[in-house]
Structure formats: C-alpha cells, structure tokens
Design a protein around this nucleic acid. Structure first.
Lengths: 209, 209, 209, 209
DNA sequence: TATGAATGAGACTTCATTCAT
DNA sequence: GATGAATGAAGTCTCATTCAT
C-alpha cells in the first residue's frame, strides 16, 4: 500500500500499470505473465514498472491490497445501507456476484492467484481479504443477536462456507465461456440456501446414516 | 542386480514419481517446483521422469486425473452405502473433510493448482473433477425426487456452492498452521447448514431490502 | 576556456560531485558505485552530474587527474624543500604515507581503480600519475649525480619499485581494519631499506645459487 | 576450492572454463567480461558454467585460489632448493618475474582484480595470496637468524615492500605494449636493491632534513 | 530402461543516460 | 542551469528438456 516511486503525475502512470497487470495476470496467470507485456499494455518502458513497484511480486501484492481495499470499502458502505442481518446478507451476496461484472479482471486474479500467494509467498498476509471476510462475519454475528440465525452457529466456519460458495460459483462463471447462468439469479439462489440454512435445525436422515 | 519386469518395476517407479510430485507441488506450488527436486525425492534421474510423463504439465495433469479418479471411485462407493439423499449428503461432506487428513498433499495440490490449470492450460478439461461434482449433483437430484430438497433447487448452482464451501474450509484448514477446528466438526456444521438450506423457503427480510 | 560545466557557482557544485565520487568510489569501487548515489551524496540531481562530466568514466578520470594533480604539485613543493637526494627521498616517502591520513578516500580510489582504468579504459593515459613517478625519478637521477646512489642504478625500474612498495603498504594499511602499524613508522622502515639498497653492491650468496 | 559440478570427465571442462575466464578477465577486467564470452571461448553453453561455479564471483574466486594455490606450491618447491636466505630471495624474485612470462594471463587477473575483490567482496579472504606472502616472510625471518639481514628489520613491512615492488614492476610490464625491459634483468635489479637494503644501516642525509 | 551432464532460450531486473519541464 | 522521471539495452542466471552413453 506504500506509495513508492514518483509522486503526483506519476499516480496516473502507476494506475495504468496496475490496470495492465490485472488484465495480463487475469488472462495468463502470474507465472505466465511477462513484465514486458504488462509494460507494453500500460504504454511504459519495462524499467518504469520498477519505479513504482519493487518487483513482480510486489506488483501482484499491491494489486491485491489496493484493489481489494477498494472492494472492501465499497461493500462496507453498501452493507451499511441494509436493515437486519438477512437484508445485509442479501446485499453482500448480491454485491459479490455483481463484482464479477463490474470488476471482472480483478476478481479473476484474486480467485486464482490469492491461493498461490497465500500459500507460497512467505511473509504475505492477505490483510484486505481477511477484512472482506470480517464484513461477512459481522453480518452473521449480528444475525445471531437478532435471533435470525441459530445461536450455536459457528460464525468462523459459516463465513468461510458462504465465501467459498460465492467464490466457487464466481470461478465457474469466469471459467465457462458459455456463461450458463446469470450472476443476479445465482445470487438469489445462494441467498435462499444460506438464509434458510443458517437459521434452522438439521432434519433427521433416513436410511443407513 | 536382477531387473524387475518392465511393467512391475516401471509402474512402481511411475507411482514414486507421482507421489514425489504431490509432495513437492503441495509444498511449493507448481511453478516453484523443480523437476530435479521431484526426481531427487522419487529417487530417479531427471530424465527418467520424461520416460513416464510427456512434460511437467503432463505430470500435473496425470496427477489430477489419476489421483482424483481414485478419490471419485472411493466417494462413489461410500455414498452408495448411504440411504436417502440427506444421509448421502452427510457422507459426501464427511468424506471430503476426511480427505484433508487421508490425502493431505493431494488435496492441497488440487485446491491450489486446479484453478491455475483450469484457466491457463490450454485444452485441459478436468474430467475427474467434474465427475466428483456429478456425484454431488446426483445426490441433490435424488433429494429433489425424494421431496427432501425443494423442487425448484438449481442443482448446478447448489452443487458448486456446496463444493465451494467445502473447498474453502479445507483451504483455510490447510493454510492455517494452528488447525483451529476439527475437520469432523466442520463437516457437521456444513452439513447442518446445507441440509436445512437446500430444503426450505427463504424467510422475509426486515429493514430496507 | 577549457573549463567544462557551469562557471562560478557551478565550480562549487562540481567539486561537491567530485568529493562525493571519491567517497563512493572508495567505499564500493567504480563498478559497484551508482551515479544516483553520488548525486544524492553531492546533493544534486542525477542529471546534474552530466552537466559537469561527460559520463561516469569521465568522472573517474577527472577525479584522477585533478586530485592527483594537486597531490603532484604538493609533493613537488615539499620535495623542493629537501637538501640532497636522500633527504628528498625521505620527504617523498614520508609524504606518501602521510597521504593515507590526509587524503584517505582519494588514495583508496587511485590504488584500486587506477589499475582497472589503466588497463581497460581505452585511450586513457594517466598523465598525472606518470608525473608523480617522475618526481621520484628526478630524485633518483639527482642521487646518482650526487654519488649517493650507485651509478648503474636503473632509475626506471627503481622508481617503480619504490612506488610499488609504498603503494602495497598503503593498500595493506587501507584494507586492514586493525591498522597494525603507524604510517610514519612504516615510512621510516621503507626509507631505510631503499636508502641503503639504492646505494650499494649486492653481497654474495651462499649455498646453491 | 570445493569441487562443484560433475566429476571425472567434467574436470577437463571445468579447467577449460577456468582458462577461458583467465583469458577474458585478463583482457577486459572482471566487470567488463561477459559470462557468454567466457562460455564461447571455453566451448560450452552459458548454463554449463553454472554447473561448475556458483556464479560469476565464484568463478573469479576459484580462479584466484586454485591457480594461486599452484603458484604457491611451485614457488615453495623452488625456494626450498635455495641455500641461504639471499639465494632464496633471489629465487623468489626471479620466479615472480618469470611468472609474467609463464602465466601471463593469471598474473594480470590477480594484479588487477585482487585489489577490487580484497576490498569489495564481502567475506572473501585471499588465503592463497597470504600464503604467497608467507613464503617471502619465511625467507626474511631466516635471513635475520642467519645474520644476513639486520636484526631490527620489520618483516611484515618488508615482505609487503618487496611484493609491492615486484607487483608494480610486473604491472608496468603487463601494461606497456612495448615491453621496455626484460623480466630477468628486472629481477636482477630488484634483487640488488633489496639484498643490500635489507642488510645495512641508513646513511645520514645532507641538507635540510 | 535409466542416467545426468549439457543445453540455450528467455525472464527479471538494473542503471547510465536523456530530455521535457 | 537544474531536475528526476523515464527509458531500454543488456547481463546474469534458471531450469525444462534432450540425448549420448
């Protein structure tokens, strides 16, 4: 998040580089992306990238943190507009699926690369991602207090489950060329499942359990 | 030294290479793994790997397909033991979380690399992964017929949602050194959420919707 | 007329750059020194250096010639104060070792970089260095005329030998952190060796020659 | 000195690389030499160099230590042939000047690069160079015991002085295209100076001291 | 089959130098 | 004159893959 490199007018150039990186990383993946390609797309010389970012890793991480930071701020504001926990959950889910359209490249990078980075970049903690999860956790906690979700709900697990569901569906959407379903409809279905699922008791099973 | 037959000895060697690849890929990721390191761990020469696999990509894909194939066969057999859709869903979920313990390395590779590969390896269709999803889809379809899940449930989406939830929780488990929760307990919680969530109608929201 | 760069106020800036270059070159060596680092230490912009010097090579050579020029003028004046060749040799040697203290950085640069430059910079002739050697050669020539040194002394070789001895001892002094010996004492010892050595006949050897 | 890289047949290749490095380094200097150029001259691929040496630095240092090691062994054997300290000093000096002819490239590299490396390569101690100085120190110590050199001679300084004289004259020889003097004659002159200089008392100076 | 030394294309990154302001 | 952001050529080193043994 630290602004390295030239100030002022440079900010626009820095942003051009970040956008180019999103585009290239999302198309080819981090390891298959070439700095020279990002530079070309950003309309700068290769070396210029190193005025704004320490190295290729730093470019990826800056992209995560800064762009994800914007996403987090945005979803926070949107969720705050909601009423009870259910309506806020609805907003959160709807917003997530909507991001697929609004911020396609960024989402693709995050989905594919965040896992790699999480696991293989030493010393990298995905702060902004954890904040995003916290927004969801806050909704679930509130829902328990409001009596909307069952009191013994494991929020830590549940928020991961919801995020995982959203993320997987996003990925399927992103990967399939055919775009079989509509993100808004998908948001509805996911909401229905969790709105009910977080509230009630499990039914009894039939047959050999 | 008496040489083993080409089949027997070779098959064992091939498997040693695959196991070594799982170990190294899961620790460092595909792009950070070196063929020479896999060879060393497998106890063969670098060149030997190319007698069994076309190239590094092929090693990863073979690993996906073959090992994932075993996982699919296994879960099919286990699920067949169940009674109604709910009990089979319970088995599926329990089995998935249990894989984290039984097949730790493999799961880590699949979680992290499958996304990359899905997106960036030309011409690769993750057949076995889709079969795994089909097992889940079969359970959901049956549940609808059995009247356990609501009739308008979008199975295509729901199976992705369930898989995503399981996968994300697995990932969190794998990434956290602390192992905050028990896979079996996590399986219970996930089951409760979906068993209920797949059945009922969404409640009405309060506040600004 | 021959003056490069800006006039007046510029001269001070030019000197700041030269001093900074001495400091950086002496610490890191020519090839490991960065123009940007010299600029920072001199308190000017990178580009400013190119207003006063043609390029990095020119900066090094200017440094050699100008600073070495001062050293030569200075030693000439000091030597002129001496009486016979021996006393002038003593002054020359004492002055050289004293330079280690008075002009530490410059000496380090000359010792280490002059060799490189001598050999690898096309078209560079270290004029001032040769003048420095000439001062020494003049003393030896005079000594021969005065009958203090033996008449068949090869002055060309001897002046190199004396310079080499002084230079090597200076280098050892500069390189060792411990500063094992005192430059003034070292000057005494060197003087003793050469004062005697330049005069007499070699003794006969014993054993297998 | 540690033998890295392939064994056996590789030793010849390793040596080809070292010889090529000596040639290129001596012609252009370390920093102006390209790995690709050394590889070409050695008749190997660029990457092959890295099978035998860790990096470019390691190539230079290996060259110093291994080749200098041979020089030290050799001079030790030659000096042991001598009788008293004077005759051994004569051998040492003669051998040093003779190296200029026998091992021209190596000597050039050592003269020019050792200074750089001494000063700027962290953690590098020129062990073999110090051993070479020790051979000279041993001769001087013996000479004092034999009563050939004066008893208050500072051996640490004197051996540096002798080495410096030899080194500087070698450098001048190497640098001058014209080859003004003969190494053997130069050896004679240097020997005469030190054989006398190390023995006697300094004469008194005339004039202003 | 198995080996592993050798290959060489190509990536990241640095940094002297330029030039619009 | 002074600046310093921008340039882009070029070098070191890596590593998947090959092939002679």
């Amino acid at each position: 998040m630290a602004r390295r490199g030239p100030q002022g007018g440079g900010a626009a150039k820095r942003d051009r580089i970040l956008r180019a990186a999103i585009r290239i990383f999302s198309q080819k993946g981090y390891f298959n992306s070439r700095i020279s390609e990002i530079a070309r797309l950003a309309g700068v010389a290769d070396g210029t990238i190193y005025l704004y970012f320490k190295n290729k890793d730093d470019l990826l991480i800056s992209l995560f943190e800064e762009k994800m930071g914007e996403v987090v701020s945005d979803v926070r504001a949107r969720v705050a507009e909601g009423g009870d926990a259910l309506s806020r959950l609805r907003i959160f889910i709807g917003n997530h699926m909507d991001l697929l359209v609004r911020e396609a490249g960024l989402i693709e990078v995050i989905q594919v690369e965040l896992r790699q980075s999480n696991k293989f970049m030493k010393e990298y903690v995905p702060v902004k991602f954890l904040e995003y999860l916290d927004v969801l956790g806050g909704i679930l906690d509130a829902g328990k207090l409001e009596g909307i979700f069952r009191p013994d709900l494991n929020v830590t697990l549940a928020r991961r489950a919801i995020f995982g569901a959203l993320d997987e569906i996003s990925l399927a959407y992103v990967l399939s060329r055919k775009r079989k379903y509509d993100p808004a409809e998908a948001a509805d279905e996911i909401y229905r499942i969790f709105a009910v699922g977080l509230r009630g008791q499990a039914p009894t099973m039939g047959g050999k359990p």
